[in-house]
Amino acid sequence: MSPVGAPRAPEVPAARRAGRAPRTTGDLPRWVWLPAALGAALVVLPVVALLTRVDWSDLPALLMSESSRAALSLSLRTAAASTVLCVLLGVPMAFVLARSRFPGQALLRALVLLPLVLPPVVGGIALLATFGRRGLLGSSLEVLGVQVAFSTTAVVLAQTFVALPFLVISLEGSLRTAGHRYETVAATLGARPSTVLRRVSLPLVLPGLASGAVLAFARALGEFGATITFAGSLQGVTRTLPLEIYLQRETDPDAAVALSLLLVVVAVLVIVLVRGREGRS
C-alpha cells in the first residue's frame, strides 16, 4: 500500500564527494542486519520446526480422514462466503471512508478497524451478545424462526467480523493513492456519480480490491477465537480447520501437525498471490 519499493532521490553526489564508491545496499547501516535476521528467524524457525514434526508417510491418510475433509471443505466454503460478504460490505465502507467527509469520520474509522486489534475471543463474546439467543438481535431473530448460534451462518458472521477491516484498509489505501483526478474529469464530462464509481473508480483500484479480498479470505480461513466462542464446534457444521487442529491436538498430535501444514501451505499461497499482484501494479 505505501510505496516502499519506490525509487528514492539518489544521494550519490555526497558519497562521491567523500571519495567513496556508491554502496549497492543504499544507506542502510550494517548493524541493522542483526536484529533483522533475528526477527526473520523468529518467524521462519517455528515454521521449519513444524515441518520437522510432519509425519510424511502418514500425511495423505491424515489429510484424507473424514473429519479432516469435513473441516477443510467447511473452512473453504465459509471463508469464501465471508469474502463475498466482505466485498459487498467493505467496498462501500472503503469508499465512504476515503471519498467523503463527515463529522465523526475519524472515530468511525477507528471503530470499524477495531477487530484488527481486538482479541478474536472478545469478538466472539460481542457477537454472542448481539446474535446469541439472549442477545441484542438474537431474541427478535428467534421470533422470526432464525437461529444463528451453533449454525454455519454463525461461522460466516464470525469470519466476516474479523476479516472485514483487512479489505477496508487495503482498499481505502488504494483509493487514496489513486487520487481524485480521473473521477473529477469524468464528473466534469457529465458522468453521474454511480457511473463514475462503476466505470472509473472501481477499475482504478481493482488490484487493491483483489489483494484486500485475498487477505480477507486468509484471515477468515484462519479464524479461531471468535468461531469457537460464538459458533461452537461440530463436525461439518461449525468445526472449521483451525478448530479441528485444536481438537485433534488432544488425541492425535500427528493429525494436528498435518492439518497445520495444510494451513501453512494455503497461507504461503496467499502471500505469493498478494505480493505478486503488488509487484506488478
Binding site: L128, G132, R133, R134, A231, G232, R239, Y246
Partner: peptide, 17 residues
C-alpha cells in the same frame, strides 16, 4: 456443539445459548 472443555459446555448453558 462438541466443546473443547467442560467449562465451555457450562458457559454455553449459563449464558442461555
Amino acid at each position: 456443539s462438541e466443546e473443547q472443555s467442560v467449562t465451555d459446555v457450562l458457559t454455553k448453558v449459563t449464558s442461555g445459548e
